[in-house]
């Protein structure tokens, strides 16, 4: 299998193993879409059932949510730039943009933790009502994915610093870039369906 290694094209696609691994990751992402769909469905069904806890309209602040959205959008862009540098064979560019991506990711997480702590102080926690359970599980699952992504990216940065660009390391970076862009896709829907709709209804 590995014998039919290609001599041209992006490194991550040159071996059969690399192509199949990337394909497998797409299947994983499709499963993730369905995972988040169940959480979105739960959230949507429980919408409005806030019980004695504050309504989302009273707590959501457009400012913070917009900053979080821009942080994640920008990190998705810099992650794309990192892969672009990788395909030019520029390890330093790849690492630099990946570190920028990570920094933006940590900024996003910082705001999200601040936001959650703020809501809990205002009396809206995981246990306070059906609506807030749905909210925290949905947004929290996304936040958990971002946290895992940052840890994963740090490990990959250490690996590439030691081994340089190979078929294997570039495949791994390509896959984490897919993962990171995908988290942005999910966030767009959380931003729209949870925060924006929570502010108009």
């Amino acid at each position: 299998m590995a014998a039919e290694e290609l001599k041209t094209g992006p490194l991550e696609y040159r071996t059969q193993e690399g192509r199949m691994t990337i394909l497998g990751f797409w299947i994983f992402l499709a499963a993730e879409v369905v995972l988040f769909a169940t959480l979105f469905a739960t959230y949507a069904v429980l919408f409005g059932r806030t019980g004695d806890a504050p309504a989302p309209m009273e707590l959501f602040e457009p400012g913070i949510v917009l900053v979080m959205t821009f942080l994640l959008l920008t990190s998705s862009f810099t992650c794309g730039l990192a892969i672009h540098q990788m395909r030019r064979g520029n390890v330093k560019g790849l690492m630099t943009w990946m570190i920028v991506t990570l920094a933006l990711g940590f900024g996003f997480l910082g705001f999200e933790i601040y936001e959650f702590v703020h809501y809990v102080h205002e009396g809206a926690s995981l246990t306070s009502s059906a609506y807030w359970s749905g909210f925290f599980v949905l947004a929290g699952t996304h936040g958990l994915h971002v946290t895992l992504g940052t840890g994963w990216a740090i490990l990959l940065l250490i690996q590439i610093a030691r081994r340089g660009l190979t078929n294997v390391t570039s495949r791994k970076f390509f896959i984490i870039s897919l993962y990171w862009h995908f988290l942005d896709v999910i966030w767009i829907f959380i931003f729209t369906c949870v925060y924006l709709i929570g502010m108009v209804i």
Partner: peptide
């Protein structure tokens, strides 16, 4: 990628299922 239309296929079905799940619920 050598996968041709497969990533597209995966995502299309993922999103179709998501739409059915959310709208159905």
């Amino acid at each position: 990628s050598g996968g041709g239309a497969v990533p597209w296929n995966m995502m299309f079905h993922g999103f179709a299922l998501a739409a059915i799940l959310v709208a159905g619920s």
